[in-house]
């Protein structure tokens, strides 16, 4: 976890609000899912910005280096970030 900043707490992606930015520190999940995330551009060390959060536990839309990705709330909970 070379991207981890020891002074900042790692929290789930779902704790962010629309417009907030953070650094991804861990993807969680199994190998297959992690690979899928990475091939979509969602990797450790990247900066994510939350674009929208759908109501009623709907998906989160985020932006990672210009790619927008919609991701279910449950999956997003397992992705850990550090606020910047």
């Amino acid at each position: 976890m070379s991207d981890m900043n020891p002074d900042e707490k790692a929290v789930p992606l779902t704790s962010l609000f629309p417009g907030e930015r953070a650094k991804i520190v861990a993807l969680g999940h199994g190998m297959g899912r992690q690979r899928h995330f990475r091939t979509m551009g969602l990797m450790e060390g990247k900066i994510v910005e939350i674009i929208a959060i759908q109501p009623a536990r709907g998906p989160v839309v985020l932006n990672v280096e210009g790619t927008q990705i919609a991701i279910g709330r449950g999956m997003a909970r397992h992705i850990l970030i550090q606020k910047i």
Partner: peptide
């Protein structure tokens, strides 16, 4: 019933 994981292209 897995969740959505989808790229939203420009």
């Amino acid at each position: 019933s897995p969740e959505l994981l989808l790229e939203v292209p420009p």
